[in-house]
Design a protein around this nucleic acid. Structure first.
Lengths: 104, 104
DNA sequence: TGATTATATAATTGAATCATTATATATTAA
DNA sequence: TTAATATATAATGATTCAATTATATAATCA
């Protein structure tokens, strides 16, 4: 598949508010699904399905810790994605206030 | 509208192969619609409608010169868009070979 | 083991999006 | 002023996509 097609497929991943918010949250560090659901105003299955797309696109990866699954960014070797995430507003404070309400 | 929403709307513009190719072409300089149609493998109305979306999103602007309308990038004040376009493959040679076949 | 919690997957619906076809507008040329 | 060219807009059909609802899997806890 040609390069422009590949790039547009990746931008398609960023072209959704829920997914872009997930990436902005993961910029601050790994989070479990329940933390993401707690912050995003949508259902758990919806979050899971967006995470699946981000994983298929190679933008995040998962690690299970007991009953929780933590997601984190996988954006090495994707230089312009890093630049984009740098321009997303910081959600650190929002995350601090919800983190570990559900897990650990 | 919040910032992440605005950003995801812009990425939606980049998340289509035809539109991303148009932007890659305009990176090399202004082009008229017929030049774009000559290179992209799709119809004139399709190109016009994609240009309309790009214009509405504030990514391009138009200048009429006689019966031709030239489009060019409008990406000052959009720093990460510039970075992205830098990472698109160069289409200079392709453009040189089709430029002005239809206009001037 | 059975119940509970965390997460994923499947099925469905409705909305958004892309491409095509047809038509309209605007400019230039005869 | 009529014809031709360049471009835009409108209408339609088909596909894609996001969100919901329902169900399945996997891990922990009692």
């Amino acid at each position: 598949m040609d390069q422009i097609q590949e790039m547009s497929d990746q931008f398609k991943m960023l072209g959704d508010k829920t997914r872009l918010t997930i990436l902005a949250m993961l910029k601050e560090g790994a989070l479990c699904v329940c933390d993401l659901v707690g912050f995003l105003e949508t259902s758990q299955p919806n979050v899971s399905q967006h995470l699946r797309k981000l994983k298929d696109a190679g933008l995040v990866h998962e690690t299970r810790k007991g009953q929780w699954i933590y997601y984190s960014l996988q954006i090495e070797d994707k230089p312009y994605i890093g630049t984009i995430l740098d321009h997303l507003p910081s959600l650190r404070e929002n995350i601090d206030s919800i983190k570990n309400n559900c897990c650990e």
